[in-house]
Design a protein around this nucleic acid. Structure first.
Length: 868
RNA sequence: GCCGGGAUGGCGGAAUUGGUAGACGCGCCGGACUCAAAAUCCGGUUCUGGCAACAGAGUGAGAGUUCAAGUCUCUCUCCCGGCACCA
């Protein structure tokens, strides 16, 4: 009587063994090829969810596979521990953010360990610990010294009732999340990292990242938004074009210098510093009113109704240097101070926005590129064509005209070639408490001064009480008070903290040397770059851009030698589930968890309704959506692990969908995975129970035995490719299931039958080991193998075993499948043609027709082309 | 609007280089076991016609290239994601 599959017992035993053997602790070994496999570190929210399971199972299976391939594999785990939710929880539950965070870490670590991930826990880090963030502070003061950090005013959300700055997530429909007060925009000084200094390198580096998804690279390219053009100066003048006594000039940026002769007006951003100076006295009231109104609106808000091009005339004029004519100067909110020079020349004939504005404000339109025949008069022409109305540019195409215009600007000394980026510098100041303190001291005499390296870290006090919403360190004069490192006079600490993206920008490097007495040491160069990074697509832009940027900062600080932090990136899809709800009479919608609902099907198996298990009454079947609290369609992995075991949950997460696609939750799917493991367990134990196994004699096998061996080795080839190259993990499982189905139908009685079965079961276990490591560990031992499964070499397909006595060849007539024949592999073309024509059904379709041509694909297919 | 990715049975998906469409799983149908249910096992399951052999249709729509198209080309529809007044 065999033991039934008991996942809890199997998994406990395996995990205890791994812990005892310290099976996942690694050190640098220059003699071995390394593999650094990294999953994005979680925020310790306390809620371990299916998205985590999916992410970490993918990372774990890649790690385990690479280890079986003989690599020295590093797979670490840690906690992105700073952040706003801890503060929100602190305010609600009156517990310090640090306590809440550490308690969550404890809980989530236990849940991760229960899933059996092969992490080297000795390298675990939490980003909220001073021994971690002190290096980030050191890097910041060094960047200050290098001129890569600066301070300027930036807009924040201000809650006038709570008297505090709110994060974007705390603003709901323009109102403060707690006070409900209308949020105001305020300008306060904040710190910036000059990511724009690396814009070109960040852009060009994408071309080398062959292992990154195109979607991510495209998003980053668009985000960097490099555009080439020119900037040039224009003099203020009077309405006749005569110079002004104290005129001055303004610089504009354009990507179309070739169209400059078509400039019919110019526009300054409302915040442009020259607006006040150059506005004509009689226009002042109107201009000031417009500026004031614009100031109260965010950039997003301004973009909202961009169809109506709002703006006013300033009464000033600028002289177009190309044709020496004056053009009126407007201010309009479609021109942004934060891009280019905050001033543009407007060429409505060749630009949609300028066209819209000119049309709305009755300004003239001059075309400078000849549109093709039939092009309407009611829109700007953006395409290529010969220049017109442009004096010495006439007749040139766009590219040539651009080059000539820039050459001319340079020869006149009034303009130059210029590249602009949409990418903005990275604002790293947050007016929150639970973050890394920005290591700066504000001295009334010396201004902002970096904290000397010897005084680092600036430690964030963890034992705090929240009085209202404001940051406890902002509220505490004692913490702020200090002396100026330069003049020794009284001074105050910066009370802003870093954006939490700062911590997640370098954690991957710290894992390599978690105890280093510097930010990093030489061990980082052994492990880096990361060979496989796995995480959600939602990080495609921000995190993955900052992470690349920071790596370059560390490289330029001499800490790492590579140019990019990660060579391969896999973005896994969301975990989604069906939603179920009822609408109450008052319109409120109440969602029910999938676990509380019973789905009804018609006799075809189609879902036709659902009822709440508790009351038997129907509920509405809603759309399939990302698992979330608000839709109550989340499933707790912990309860699944308790019911089915970690291997089942891991198998489900890998099998149900390819990694980059959405994974649809299904209880039945989990049961299917569980059923498979139970069958596997039973098959292997039945095989073992049948007694000793003879040595395999590959040359003396029956054709059925050879057939099964061929299937096995084909599966090994397929699975190796799917796991190592294509990352199609769901196909691995399908292929192994197919093999298991084949061997289950195979007799397990004769000596060589049992030898083939033994070989097959051992390889099934090896191939599934990365995905379901616990059950495989037990089955490996049951099969009589006493060496460690973890380090057993990944199986290699045996070419000789794959050779079959006979192959099935498909016969088509005019491309339509009409029959099948069997032949020895490598059969001659003539043999196959004859056999194909002799096949009964094929002959029916060929009869009475003339054979024109016969296509033969060796060992696969014969296509007979006939006419008649 | 621009950029990127998709669309295959009742459902999730497979088909790697243009060569048997629907592997594998779920669901459903039928059967075995059972007093019964659950679990388990066996068989069937793209649609249409046919007892069957088999035939016809079929990978969002339409055209094209090819002996052969889910796969390549063009046009279109819809869906998902990102960006969105960036001069």
């Amino acid at each position: 009587m065999e033991t039934p599959y008991d996942p809890q017992a199997v998994e406990t035993a395996a995990q205890e063994k791994w812990a005892r053997e310290r099976a996942y602790e690694v050190t640098e070994d220059p003699g071995r090829e390394k593999f650094y496999c990294l999953s994005m570190l979680p925020y310790p929210s306390g809620a371990f969810h299916m998205g985590h399971v999916r992410n970490y199972t993918i990372g774990d299976l890649i790690s385990r596979y690479q280890r079986m391939c003989g690599k020295n594999v590093l797979q670490p785990m840690g906690w992105d521990a700073f952040g706003l939710p801890a503060e929100n929880a602190a305010i609600k539950q009156n517990v310090p953010p640090a306590c809440w965070t550490y308690a969550n870490i404890e809980q989530m670590r236990g849940q991760l360990q229960r899933l059996g991930y092969a992490y080297d826990w000795t390298r675990e880090l939490a980003t909220c610990k001073p021994e971690y963030y002190r290096w980030e502070q050191q890097m910041f003061v060094r960047l200050m010294a290098k001129g890569l950090v600066y301070r300027r005013d930036a807009t924040v959300n201000w809650d006038p009732v709570d008297q505090t700055v709110l994060a974007n997530e705390q603003v709901i429909d323009g109102k403060g999340w707690r006070s409900g007060a209308e949020v105001e925009l305020r300008e306060i000084p904040q710190w910036f990292l000059k990511i724009t200094a690396y814009a070109d390198e960040l852009l060009d580096g994408l071309d080398e990242l062959d292992g990154w998804p195109d979607a991510v690279k495209t998003m980053q390219r668009n985000w960097i938004g490099r555009s080439e053009g020119a900037e040039f100066d224009m003099e203020f003048c009077d309405p006749e074009g005569e110079p002004l006594a104290d005129g001055g000039s303004v610089t504009v940026f354009t990507t179309r210098p070739d169209t400059s002769f078509g400039m019919t007006y110019a526009v300054l951003a409302p915040e442009h510093p020259l607006v006040a100076k150059t506005t004509a006295p009689e226009r002042r009231d109107e201009v000031e009113a417009f500026v004031a109104e614009t100031r109260g609106r965010s950039e997003a808000d301004r973009a909202e109704g961009h169809a109506d091009k709002r703006g006013v005339f300033t009464g000033a004029y600028l002289k177009n240097p190309f044709n020496r004519r004056p053009v009126p100067v407007y201010i309009a909110d479609y021109v942004l101070m934060s891009y280019g020079t905050g001033a543009i020349m407007a060429v409505p004939g060749q630009d949609q926005r300028d066209w819209d504005f000119a049309t709305a404000h009755g300004l003239p339109i001059v075309r400078t590129v000849q549109p093709p025949e039939g092009f309407g008069d009611d829109e700007p022409y953006l395409g290529d064509g010969p220049a017109i109305n442009s004096e010495w540019l006439d007749g040139l195409g766009v590219t040539a005209a651009k080059a000539k215009a820039i050459e001319w600007l340079e020869s006149q000394g009034i303009g130059r070639r210029r590249i602009n980026y949409r990418l903005r510098d990275w604002g790293v100041s947050r007016q929150r408490y639970w973050g890394c303190p920005i290591p700066v001291i504000h001295c009334p005499e010396c201004g902002p001064v970096p904290v000397p390296e010897a005084d680092l870290p600036v430690v964030l006090p963890e034992d705090v009480r929240f009085m209202g919403v404001a940051s406890p360190i902002k509220a505490d004069p004692e913490w702020r008070r200090t002396t100026c490192p330069d003049c020794a006079g009284p001074a105050e600490r910066e009370t802003d903290t870093f954006d939490t993206f700062m911590e997640s920008s370098w954690y991957y490097a710290r894992y390599c040397c978690p105890d280093a007495g510097a930010m990093l040491d030489e061990r980082a160069n052994y492990w880096l770059p990361v060979d496989q990074y796995i995480g959600g697509i939602e990080h495609a832009i921000l995190h993955l851009m900052y992470f690349r940027f920071y790596h370059k900062l560390m490289r330029d600080a001499g800490l790492v030698r590579s140019d990019e932090p990660a060579t391969r990136l896999l973005c896994q899809g969301m975990v989604v589930a069906e939603t179920y709800y009822r609408d109450a009479d008052d319109g409120a919608r109440h969602y029910f968890n999938p676990a509380e609902v019973e789905v009804e099907r018609d006799d075809q198996g189609r879902v036709c309704g659902a009822r709440l298990a508790a009351d038997g009454e129907p509920v509405v079947v809603g759309p399939i959506e990302k698992m979330s609290k608000s839709k109550n369609n989340g499933v707790d992995p912990q309860s699944l692990v308790e019911r089915y075991g970690a291997d089942t949950v891991r198998l489900f997460a890998v099998f149900t969908a390819p990694p980059e696609q959405a994974l649809e939750w299904s209880e039945a799917g989990v049961e299917g995975a569980y059923r498979f493991l139970k069958r596997l367990w039973k098959y292997v134990h039945d095989h073992v129970a049948a007694g000793p196994v003879a040595t395999l004699a590959p040359t003396g096998l029956s054709s059925a035995q050879r057939e099964l061996r061929a299937k096995l080795h084909e599966t090994i080839a397929k699975v190796s490719d799917a796991i190592g190259r294509r990352l199609h993990f769901n196909s691995i499982v399908a292929a192994v299931m197919e093999l298991v189905n084949a061997i289950a139908r195979h007799p397990d009685a004769g000596e060589q039958d049992r030898a083939v079965a033994q070989e097959t079961w051992e390889n099934v276990v090896l191939m599934l080991a990365p995905i379901t490591p616990h059950v495989c560990d037990a089955l490996w031992a049951a099969l009589g193998r006493d060496e460690a499964l973890l380090d057993h070499p990944w199986p290699v397909a045996d070419e000789a075993a794959m050779r079959r006595d006979e192959v099935e060849i498909v016969v088509q007539v005019n491309g339509r499948l009409r029959g099948r024949i069997r032949a020895a592999p490598g059969s001659e073309r003539e043999t196959l043609e004859a056999a194909a024509l002799a096949e009964e059904n094929v002959a029916r379709f060929v009869a009475g027709n003339q054979v024109r041509k016969i296509i033969v694909v060796p060992d696969k297919l014969v296509n007979i082309v006939v006419t008649g």
